Amino acid sequence: MTDKIFSIQNPQEFETIALAVFKHQFKHNKAYRSFCTLINVYASDVTKVEEIPFLPIQFFKSRPVLSSTEKIQETFTSSGTTGSVTSKHLVTDINVYKKSYLRGFAHFYGNIEAYVVLALLPNYLERKGSSLVFMVDDLIRKTKNIESGFFLDNLQELSKKLEELDKKGQKVLLIGVSFALLDLVEMQKFNLKNTIIMETGGMKGRRKELVREELHGILQNGFGVSEIHSEYGMTELLSQGYSKGNGIFKTPPWMQICTRDTEDALTINPAGKNGGINVIDLANYNSCSFIATQDLGKVHKNGTFEIIGRFDNSDIRGCNLMVL
Results as ranks from 00 to 15, higher is better:
Arg103Glu: 08
Leu66Arg: 13
Thr77Lys: 04
Ile72Tyr: 14
Leu102Gly: 05
Cys36Arg: 13
Asn95Phe: 05
Thr69Arg: 12
Thr37Val: 14
Lys61Ile: 09
Phe59Asp: 00
Asn40Asp: 14
Lys98Ala: 05
Leu102Val: 11
Leu102Thr: 13
Asp93Thr: 08
Gly83Leu: 02
Glu70Ile: 01
Lys48Asp: 10
Ser67Ile: 09
Thr47Leu: 07
Phe54Val: 12
Lys98Cys: 01
Leu102Phe: 10
Ser44Val: 15
Gly83His: 08
Phe60Ala: 09
Thr47Lys: 13
Ile72Gln: 09
Pro56Glu: 00
Ser100Val: 04
Ile52Asn: 01
Pro64Gly: 06
Glu74Lys: 15
Thr77Pro: 07
Ile57Arg: 06
Asn95Ile: 03
Val65Pro: 00
Asn95Thr: 14
Gly83Val: 03
Asn95Lys: 15
Pro53Ala: 07
Gly83Thr: 02
Ile39Glu: 12
Glu74Pro: 14
Lys71Ser: 07
Asp45Ser: 08
Ser87Gln: 09
Asp45Pro: 02
Ser79Thr: 08
Leu90Gln: 14
Glu74Tyr: 15
Gly80Phe: 10
Lys61Gln: 01
Pro56Gln: 03
Gln58Gly: 01
Ile39Trp: 04
Thr77Ser: 08
Phe60Ser: 08
Leu55Val: 05
Phe59Leu: 02
Cys36Leu: 07
Glu70Thr: 10
Thr81His: 15
Phe105Arg: 08
Thr77Ala: 09
Gly83Ala: 01
Thr77Asn: 10
Leu66Ser: 04
Thr92Val: 08
Thr37Ile: 11
Ile72Phe: 07
Ser100Cys: 03
Val85Met: 08
Ser87His: 03
Val96Ser: 07
Phe54Gly: 04
Gly80Ala: 00
Ser62Tyr: 03
Pro53Val: 10
Lys98His: 11
Ser44Asn: 15
Ser68Phe: 12
Leu90Ser: 08
Phe59Glu: 00
Leu90Asp: 05
Ser79Asn: 02
Leu90Asn: 10
Thr77Leu: 06
Ser79Phe: 09
Glu50Asp: 11
Ser100Asn: 01
Cys36Val: 12
Ser79Ala: 03
